[in-house]
């Protein structure tokens, strides 16, 4: 083997070793630029850069989540309170195309669903139902591709927001029980507290009051500082109903920022 051949092989090895970094690099750069623009409240640049980051690294939970946060901040800056429905349409169209371009990306589908959730508080009550239903469809597709903890938690929690007459809370409980089983087999993460809260809420909404309290108790043992769990456990009867109805009010904006997840991933 000649020196030249060795050099070429070495170069190839070095190149291939750098391929992931080279692919991730531009996405990271775009993400960083997007974050800087977001901090400066330059929403147009932030959205463009974060869209670029999503296109370069479509299955990144981080990139898609932050893109949605940028859109949210832009619309609320432009239309105080909950924004205007039209403000979310470009974002939804972007995720729709991204999902079509990357049909195997479960995180794109998840964030596509979240884009509909972000729009809900700005919409009228009937449109809210249509948006929530469409979001559920995308969450379902994401789970079909990859039943991750976040996807199961998200869909399960979403079902709980539906009024009782739709009888969807039991579907939520089924998803949340799967997410619960998953987190029991993983190292503890701060966001796991969400399943204790929501699964308890799901039990409460399906009239399993004892199971609900038991789940919240278990959650509080694991997360002793959790105020939402303390609040639930301190209430009974109508007080508890008022509290949970208030939490699960579809007119209120749901926090869909996934920073807690991608920061710990």
């Amino acid at each position: 083997m000649s020196y030249r051949t060795l050099s070429i092989l070495a170069a190839l090895f070095v190149s291939s070793a750098f391929i992931p970094t080279m692919l991730a690099g531009p996405a990271d750069d775009a993400f960083d630029q997007g974050q800087q623009a977001l901090a400066a409240k330059d929403y147009t640049t932030a959205i463009a850069k974060l869209q670029q980051a999503v296109q370069l690294d479509p299955d990144s939970l981080r990139n898609s989540s932050q893109l949605r946060q940028a859109v949210l901040r832009q619309t609320i800056a432009a239309h105080p309170k909950e924004g205007s429905t039209a403000d979310f349409d470009a974002e939804i169209a972007f995720f729709q195309k991204a999902a079509a371009d990357h049909p195997m990306s479960s995180n794109i589908l998840l964030n596509y669903g979240f884009a509909y959730v972000d729009k809900i508080p700005a919409a009228g009550s009937i449109t809210q139902v249509i948006l929530a239903n469409t979001a559920l469809t995308q969450f379902g597709k994401s789970i079909e591709l990859k039943p991750t903890w976040i996807a199961l938690y998200t869909r399960g929690n979403s079902y709980l927001y539906w009024p009782r007459v739709f009888a969807r809370a039991s579907l939520g409980v089924a998803d949340l029980e799967k997410a619960y089983a998953m987190q029991k087999s993983e190292p503890k993460k701060s966001y796991h507290v969400r399943v204790y809260i929501s699964l308890g809420d799901g039990y409460w909404k399906t009239d399993n009051i004892e199971k609900a309290r038991s789940m919240w108790q278990e959650g509080l043992q694991a997360f002793p500082d959790s105020q939402p769990l303390k609040d639930r456990l301190s209430k009974q009867g109508d007080d508890l109903k008022t509290y949970i109805d208030n939490v699960l009010d579809p007119n209120k904006r749901v926090d869909t920022d996934l920073k807690e997840l991608w920061m710990q991933s």
């Binding site: 009228g124 009550s125 009937i126 139902v129 009024p163 009782r164 007459v165 739709f166 009010d249 007119n251």
Partner: peptide, 9 residues
């Protein structure tokens, strides 16, 4: 307006 479990206007 209409305010019920399924439509909280």
């Amino acid at each position: 307006n209409i305010t019920d479990d399924y439509m909280r206007e």
